[in-house]
Simulated scan of single mutants.
Amino acid sequence: MVTKDKQNREADVVSRYSKKRSASEAATTFSLVKKTYPDAVELTGTPPGTRGMLLLVACFFVFIAAISANQIAENVLVHEMRRVSHIITSIGYLAFIVLSIYLTAFCVRLELFKPEDEPIIFDRKNRKIYRLFMDSDSSWKGILRPWPVRVAEHDWDLAEAEHHVSVNANTATISRVHALIFQMRKSRASAEIVDGFAVGSSLQLGELTVPAVWEYIRRFMEENGDHLPNSESVIEMKKPASLLDSILAVGLYGENFRKWWRSERALTILALIFSPILYPVLTLLGLFVWLGYKTSKPIVWPEEIKRKIGNPLQ
């Protein structure tokens, strides 16, 4: 019998990759590799440009809660709940407030007081995958409890890589979100999935980059491929030294503005036109990036894993 969860998972899968067959002519790290070892590579789980975004989303939910609270106050103080419609709409707005509080709290928990990174190590010598992650709990009780940091070890031979696509639609646009997902089987004899995780950010990966990133991993693990193909380099996971550095890094200020002006002049002019809206949002994002780094916890891999992969090359 196929469960509903499995049906949903099947509907999202557009490709299942073979470890023995090429999935793309090109292979790229897509700026995900942060460290290399003699026979292993460490990929970042928090790609540059993704930190702080959830706190920005949380602001939207706070805005929704504020509007809903204002509508309830108007129904109580102005209309004095004279009609059934006032009572019904107030209950609806109250539901919006409760949902917004939950989503805001969840976004805050996902961004603050988390590990500096949630990296994944692919170890071809021992045919293992190691990952360090925060074990989040999305229940109401879970949001109020500490979230432990865990380390998982998986057999490469039990990993199944999949290309997932989900469709986001609204009244104006339809967009497709692509993700590279690893599903871990229980054993060689069982197809039961016991764990799963994503590589890279679905905000950055696309239709062509998902198979190219998988192809890089596949070649490295199966064909003794290069640590860094096509003259690519490891990314520098550098913390901003101050709040000002965080704001300058995400906003169209200084060097960022000069780069955009040289390469994307039309978009830069458009950004200047909408600067009364854009710049406050980017400044707020810079603040959230700084808060994320300021409250983050250092990464500590277990000594057993360090012994297996050896000292980093770079």
Rank of each mutant, 00 (worst) to 15 (best):
N126T: 06
E160L: 13
V151Y: 10
A27H: 09
K125M: 06
P298A: 11
W156M: 04
M221H: 01
C59A: 13
E304H: 11
N126S: 11
P298I: 08
W290I: 06
Y253C: 13
S24K: 07
R145V: 06
Q314F: 14
E153S: 08
R109T: 10
L252V: 04
L244Y: 08
R185W: 09
G292F: 09
H79V: 01
R109N: 13
L56R: 07
L77H: 11
Q314I: 15
S202V: 05
F288G: 06
S296P: 11
S18I: 11
N230V: 02
V62D: 09
H227K: 05
H164K: 05
E42H: 04
R9W: 12
V234W: 02
W156A: 02
L243I: 04
V281Y: 10
I101Q: 04
S18Y: 09
E215F: 00
R127N: 02
Q183V: 10
M81K: 07
L278F: 12
S24C: 13
P119D: 13
D155E: 14
H227V: 01
G52N: 03
I72C: 02
I305T: 04
L267W: 14
V199K: 03
T50W: 01
V210N: 01
P115L: 01
S275Q: 07
A191E: 15
T268L: 04
G286R: 04
T268G: 01
F30L: 14
G52Q: 02
A40S: 07
L205R: 00
A179I: 01
Q71F: 12
A73L: 15
A105W: 10
L252S: 11
R185N: 11
F106Y: 10
P48Q: 00
K239M: 07
P119R: 03
L278M: 12
G251K: 00
K297C: 12
K128T: 05
I181N: 03
G142F: 05
L244S: 11
V250A: 03
F182M: 04
D117H: 04
R109P: 09
S231G: 00
F60R: 08
S22H: 15
G142C: 05
A169E: 14
K125A: 11
A241S: 11
L291M: 14
N75E: 05
E303D: 13
L270F: 10
I72K: 00
E25G: 15
V213W: 01
P280Q: 05
F61V: 05
E80S: 05
F96Q: 08
S246E: 02
Q183K: 15
I299L: 13
V149N: 03
I273N: 03
S68C: 06
F182N: 00
L54F: 13
L248Y: 08
Q314E: 12
K239L: 11
K128A: 07
D5E: 15
L313T: 08
V149R: 00
T171Q: 13
Y102W: 06
C59G: 11
R9N: 09
E80F: 09
R51F: 12
Y253Q: 12
S231T: 00
I193T: 03
E223R: 02
G206F: 10
F96R: 01
T171K: 14
V165G: 00
M53Y: 12
Y293L: 10
K294D: 14
A152I: 00
N230C: 04
V177A: 05
K294E: 15
G286L: 06
Y253P: 08
N126P: 01
N168D: 15
T29F: 07
K297S: 15
I91S: 12
W214M: 06
S296C: 10
